[in-house]
Design a protein around this nucleic acid. Structure first.
Length: 450
RNA sequence: GUGGCUGUAGCUCAGCAGGUAGAGCAUCGCGUUGUGGUCGCGAGGGCCGCGGGUUCAAGUCCCGUCAGCCACCCCA
């Protein structure tokens, strides 16, 4: 038999690390549900022609095909590479059964055939929330998703986060006003500002045929940011002083709408979750279907991790038009991998058991199992020692697994339970004894801020 | 998908210029015959990632491959 080997980009966690991932997942579910979002789960596959919207993305798609398919049969199914495409199909398919605006959360694995690196995998969890409307999507919902995500992230055992927000209409209006026609292309270049610097962006824009003055204006715009509404005045000043196209009235109108929308977003998010949102006019997002608010979220002090939660507003979820919506997505696997490798979080233990019931000798194993079952009846996770080794060994067995309590049965009664961290040992009754709430199940602790 | 760096014990890493594989920690045993963690003594543990090549001789040099990481690309 061939030796087993890891598969590049398909990581598997130890039980202890999975405790961290599971904790993150359940925390997100709870916060999403608290805000009225319902869960859906979609199938793992979609027709390839639906997935492969553009040829760029299609290179990443894993296809699904029967091993013994006819030799010339073309693969028709592919694994989804995000949750937005399947969600769009789901909404279209079930529109008669859904109430709008429709809020949903969805946490599933997705697959991308990319070259793996730390925190970048080929199979990973994504956690999405979206709200879609049938006809028009009220603007306040663009604030709502940001607030829900900010609260969800706030509940995780991670450092505080800052959500950088921008508005596509604002940027597009501005760009068109200064004579940049390929708005999407320009955005992609400006998005690289951190990586390639202002001169790099200028060079890329020049290649796209953007004039020097327009490129400078775009870079000036990207420099503006504020944790409140004061960005608006800065944008308006820049607009006044910059060289514009012959008739910028349409562009100016679009710009004004974007400014108003971004102002409302920053103010309402910060009212709900103070200190979270920053209007940052450099945030672009590579995806070109966004039309309104766009979001990128960074962990304070760990900006190098990149965005851990992002999204935006789109005018139309489905190809034929209709169903405007807004959504955000957390790359859970990426986030968890980065947290673990940076030592920012750890599980309190890797096994569920809060108690190890010791075995005095094999003749009385049944008595130990009886104690364990009575604890389980009351929802206390426990296990029975694998062998009747010396008690010192049994304590070590518990200690290595992080099990905080060892129960020593006695011939006459239930015996005693010992907290092996403190050494405290007390008489106990298996029908009434309770571990502290914090010890009952494995938990996740944030690293002490150094 | 393109380019680069790395791969030696469970972990972190030494290994000289090609000359029979090492340390610390961890593990196991005993001292300590039924309540651990200290200390002392001892032991086990290696397809030197995998395959091929050069050489009298390869952990060491060359090629390929796989895996991890980094930069592109793209994004979570």
């Amino acid at each position: 038999m061939a030796r087993v080997r890891p598969l590049s980009g398909f990581p598997e966690l130890t039980p202890r690390d999975r405790v961290v991932e599971a904790h993150v997942l359940s925390t997100l579910r709870e916060v999403f549900a608290l805000h009225g979002y319902g869960e859906i789960e979609t199938r793992a596959v979609e027709p390839i022609d639906r997935l492969a919207g553009d040829s760029e993305a299609s290179k990443e798609i894993y296809v699904l095909q029967r091993l013994n398919a006819e030799g010339d049969a073309e693969a028709k199914l592919g694994l989804h590479f995000d949750l937005t495409v399947p969600f769009a199909r789901y909404v279209e398919e079930n529109q008669g059964a859904l109430q709008f605006p429709f809020r949903r959360w969805q946490i599933q694995k997705v697959w991308r055939g990319e070259r793996p690196q730390e925190g970048r995998f080929r199979e990973f969890y994504q956690a999405d929330i979206d709200i879609v409307a049938r006809e028009t999507l009220p603007e306040h919902l663009e604030s709502e998703v940001a607030i829900v995500m900010a609260r969800a992230l706030g509940r995780l055992p991670i450092p505080s986060v800052t959500m950088h927000v921008n508005n596509r209409a604002l940027v597009e209006g501005f760009y068109r006003g200064v004579g940049i026609d390929d708005v999407a292309g320009a955005l992609r270049s400006v998005d690289k500002l951190d990586k390639i610097g202002p001169d790099g962006v200028r060079a890329e824009l020049a290649e796209q045929g953007v004039s020097e003055t327009a490129a400078d204006a775009a870079l000036e715009l990207a420099r503006i940011s504020s944790p409140d509404a004061s960005f608006a005045a800065a944008v308006e000043d820049l607009w006044e002083t910059t060289t514009k196209v012959e008739d910028p009235s349409d562009a100016q109108e679009q710009l004004a709408r974007g400014i108003a929308s971004l102002t409302a977003l920053v103010e309402s998010v910060n009212a709900a979750v103070p200190g979270t949102a920053v209007a940052d006019l450099r945030i672009a997002r590579g995806l070109d279907y966004y039309t309104g608010s766009v979001y990128e979220t960074f962990m304070d002090g760990h900006e190098g991790f990149g965005s851990i939660c992002s999204g935006g507003r789109y005018d139309s979820l489905v190809a034929g038009g209709g169903f405007p919506g807004v959504g955000m997505s957390i790359g859970v696997s990426r986030l968890v991998a980065l947290l673990l490798s940076a030592g920012l979080v750890s599980a309190t233990r890797g096994v569920p058991s809060a108690v190890l019931v010791a075995v005095t000798d094999e003749e009385t194993r049944a008595a130990s199992q009886g104690i364990a079952d009575r604890l389980r009846d009351r929802g206390i996770p426990c296990e029975v020692a694998p062998s009747a080794a010396k008690f010192g060994k049994q304590i070590q067995h518990a200690d290595k697994r992080g099990i905080p309590f060892v129960w020593f049965p006695a011939p006459d009664g239930d015996g005693q339970v010992k907290d092996i961290r403190t050494g405290d040992q007390v008489d106990a009754d298996a029908d009434t004894w309770e571990p502290p709430a914090a010890d009952r199940w494995p938990g996740v602790s944030a690293a002490d801020p150094a």
